[in-house]
Design a protein around this nucleic acid. Sequence first.
DNA 1: CTTTCGTGTTGCGTTTTCGGCTACGCACCT
DNA 2: AGGTGCGTAGCCGAAAACGCAACACGAAAG
Lengths: 301, 301
Amino acid sequence: MNLRALLYFDELVRTNSMRAAAENLNVAPTAVSRQIENLEEYFGAQLVERSNRGIRLTAAGRLLAERAGKTLRELDHVHQLIDDLKGLQGGKVVLYANGATVANVIAPVLAEFSLLHPRLRFEVTISSAREAIEALAAGEADIAVTLFAPPMAGVKVRLSSEVAYDVILSRQHPLSKAEKITVVELMKLPLALPDRGFAARQAIDDLFGREKLEPDPLFVTSSLDMLKELVLRGAAVTLLPELAVRREVEAGLLSAVPIADGKAVRTAIDLCVSPDRQLTAAAKALVEFIEDHVRVANPAR
Amino acid sequence: MNLRALLYFDELVRTNSMRAAAENLNVAPTAVSRQIENLEEYFGAQLVERSNRGIRLTAAGRLLAERAGKTLRELDHVHQLIDDLKGLQGGKVVLYANGATVANVIAPVLAEFSLLHPRLRFEVTISSAREAIEALAAGEADIAVTLFAPPMAGVKVRLSSEVAYDVILSRQHPLSKAEKITVVELMKLPLALPDRGFAARQAIDDLFGREKLEPDPLFVTSSLDMLKELVLRGAAVTLLPELAVRREVEAGLLSAVPIADGKAVRTAIDLCVSPDRQLTAAAKALVEFIEDHVRVANPAR
DNA sequence: CTTTCGTGTTGCGTTTTCGGCTACGCACCT
DNA sequence: AGGTGCGTAGCCGAAAACGCAACACGAAAG
C-alpha cells in the first residue's frame, strides 16, 4: 500500500477519469491505472467501476475516497506545522466565510493583515455557514467566519461578536436624518429583505414577530449586493449591519439608522476553528489579528 | 513521500530505536534508517536526534508522530469498513473500559457476544474514563464504556445507564439482612472507599455532604478488588453497584443493601462512540448488543 | 585506559517497484 | 463503417527499496 496510490486515487475521484487524473498529475494514464489496481488488491475490493465513458466509484470506493482526501490534507497540514517551527514565515491560510456581509468585515482585515505578512497566501471561499463548518471538520479550512455558527461538534468558537442590524436607507430618504426608527414606522416603508435562506432573515422576522407584525417586503433577494443597490436607488430600505455598508455611509450615499427602543436585530458573527487541529502559525496569527481587530471595532465587549 | 516511511516512523516512535523498530517490522535496520532519512528530506527538518543510545524525537518529530499514528489507524479503519461491506464477518473491536466495576458488566456481555460471533476478535483495555475518551478521539478505540463520561467534544454517548450504589457487607454482618441502611447508620460502620481519583468517590462524598456529614473511611484504596476483599473478610463495608458484586451476592458471600430514603449514590455508565467515525459492522453489532443487554437488565429505562 | 557492547550509518550489489511507450479491446457517437 | 474516447496488457528502462557487510561513534564495563 502506497501513499502515491492514494494521491492518484484522490485525483481520480475528482476527475472521474483515469486519463484526466493522469493529465492533472503529469503522469501517464497507465501509471494511474496501475496504482488503482494496487489499491484494489490491497483492499481486496473493487474501488471503481470501469466503463468506456470514464469510471464510477463503487461503495468501497466512496468509503476510501472520503478518507483519502482527509489523510492527504492532514499530512500536508503537518508539513506546514513543521515549516512553522523552522520559523519560515510562509504558508497559506484557508478561510471559509459566509455571505457578502462577512466579506465586508473580512476583506479589510485581510488587506491589512497581508501587508503585515507579505509572504502569506490566502484562500477565501464564500459559502454557507453549514459548508464552512463542514470544511473545518474535514480539515479543508483553517478558519471559518460565519453568522450564527451552528452548535456543532468538531468546531470551536474562538470569538463571537454581536452585530446590530440598522435600518439602511438612501441619504435622500426623508428619514435618513432620524435618530431612530420604530418597528411600526419600518412597516410602512418599502422593504428589501434577504430571503429566508439567510440567518439574518430569521432574526428580522423575529423582530417583527415580537411586535405581532408581519413584514411585507417589496423585494426579497438572496444577494446582499442587490439589497444595497435597491436602497442606493431609493427603491427600498433594508436592514443590514452598519459595517456592511460603512463605505457607502462614509461616502454620503447611505444612512444607517438604529431601530428604536433597543429592539435592534442582533446576530452573532462567529470566528470558528477546529478543536482537534493545531493552527498553523499563519492561521494563528490571522485569528489573533481578527480578534484584536474586532476588539478595537467593538470595544464594548 | 511514502506511506511505508510513515509506518516505519510510527514503529520507530514506539520503540525509540532503529534496530528495534526494524526487528518488529521484519526489515533490516538500514531500511528504517533510510526511510527516516527520506522523511526528513521530505519535511525539510530533522525528525529524530540520533545518539549512541537510541533516538529521540525532535519537536518536528513529535508533530509528525501524532499524525502518523492516526493516519495509519484511519486507513486500517477504512480497510475494515470495506471488508464489512464485502460481508466478511471478521474484524476486531477495540474497546476501552474503565475500572473493575465496568469489567463486571462487560465481561459477561463480551462472553455472550463472542459466542454469537465466533470470528470476531476483541481488544479490551482497562483505563481511566479520561484515557478511554482520548482513545476514542484519537481513533484508537471503537467503543468506550466509562463511568461519568466527561462531556467532551468528539464523543457521542450512545447509552447512559444509571447504577445505584448499595451498601456492600459481608453476610455475617448484623445489618446484612436489613432492608435499608440510612446514611447515619453508615457513618457508624467501618468504611472502605475508593480513593478520590474515582468518579464514584466523588458521588459518595456528595451523598454524605448532603447530610452535612463527612465520612471517615477506615480504608481508602484505588483497587476495587481490595474493597471487595476487605468486605469479604468482614473488615469493613463499602459502597458499590450491586452488579459489581452480583456473583458474590449470589454465592451467599456478600449482601447488597440499598441506602434508605432513595438517597442512593447514583452514577451513570456511559457507552460512547466517536461521532465522526463510522462504526465497523463488528463494532455496531456489539454496541447494539450492549444496548439490548442493558435494556433487559434495566427495563425501567 | 582499554575493551566491549550497542547504537545509527555508509557502500555496493540485488531485488522489487514504478513509470512511460505502444498497441489493443471495447463501447459509443457520427 | 469509421472515428473517438475510454481503460488496460506487454515490454523495457529507470528509480527506489532492500539486505549484507563494514564502519564510526559513545557509553559503560573491566
